[in-house]
Amino acid sequence: MIIRKLVYFTAKAIQNIRQFLLINLITVGIISLSLIVLSSFLMISLTLQKYLDTWKRQVPVAVYIKDGLPPDETTAVRQKIMNFHEVEEVSFISPEEAIRSLQEIFPGQAHVFGSLKENPLPASFEIRLKVGYQSPERLRTLAGNLERIPGVDEVEYAKDWIEGYESFFNFVNTVAWTIGTIIVFATIFIVSNTIRLTVYARREEIEIMKLVGASNLFIRIPFLFEGIVQGLLGAVLALIALYGSFRLCAGWLVHQSFLPLQYVQISFLPLNYGLFILIGGMATGLLGSFFALGRYLRVS
C-alpha cells in the first residue's frame, strides 16, 4: 500500500517536472549552483581552519633568560616552565646555538657573525604548546605568567600574526555565512516559484481531484516530491561538479610556490559533508514546495 502510493506520487512528480521540463531544469541548475557556492565556502573555511591549526601548532614561544644567569637557576626556570600544563615540550637554546641557527638562515652573511667579538644573543627556552592552547587570549595569559618567573627577561611569540590571522579567519567565516544564508533563502524562493507554476497549471486537476474526494495531503505530496526531486538532482549535480573541479584544481594549487600550502592538504568535503549537501538540497526543495503550497490547496 505504502509502496504503491510512493510509486504513484513519484510518477506524478515526474509527470509535473516533465510538463515544465525547461523551468524545472533551470531550477535544478540554480539549486546546484547555490550548493556549489555554499560548498566552496565550506571548503575554503575548512582549509583555512586546517591551515590555521597547523600553523598554530608550530608557533614557537621563546622565553629569553637574563644574561649570565647561573646554570642551576636556569634549570629552575626550565622546571617552572615545564610546570605549565599548556607546555608540550621545552628545549634550551644556548647563545651559540642561536648564532648557529641564524647563520643557517642567512648563509651568505656568515662572516658578519664570525666578526662579532661577543655573542649578542641571549640564551632562551623554546616552548612548543599542546594543541588547543594557541588562542590569542590563552597565549597572552601564558606569556604574562612566563614573564613573571624569576630569571626570565622577556617572552616572545608571534602575537600580531596570530591575532591577525584569527580575525581574518573570523571575517571570512562571517562573510561566508551571511552570503550563504542569503543564497539559501533565494534558492528556496526560486524553487517555491517553480512549484507554484506547476500548481497553477494543475489547478483544474486539483479542483477535480478534490471533487472526487482526494485529501489535501494526497494532492500536496506529488508537489512536495517534485521539490525534493529537484533538490536531489541539484545536489547530485553539485557534488559531481565540485569533485571534478577539486580533482582538477587541487593538484595545481599545491604546486604553486606563491601559496604556503606545502604543509596543508586542500580538503575536499568529507563524506558526511557530501551527505549534508544531498540532504541540504532535498530540504531546500522540500521547503520551497512547502511554501508554494501554503496558500493553495485548501478544501473548498
Binding site: 471533487l211 474526494g213 478544501v299
Partner: peptide
C-alpha cells in the same frame, strides 16, 4: 472538519 469532507466525497458520486 475539513478533513472529513474528502472522506464523504469518496462515498458520493456527482455528475456535474
Amino acid at each position: 472538519k475539513t478533513s472529513t469532507i474528502p472522506l464523504l466525497r469518496r462515498r458520493v458520486g456527482f455528475v456535474f
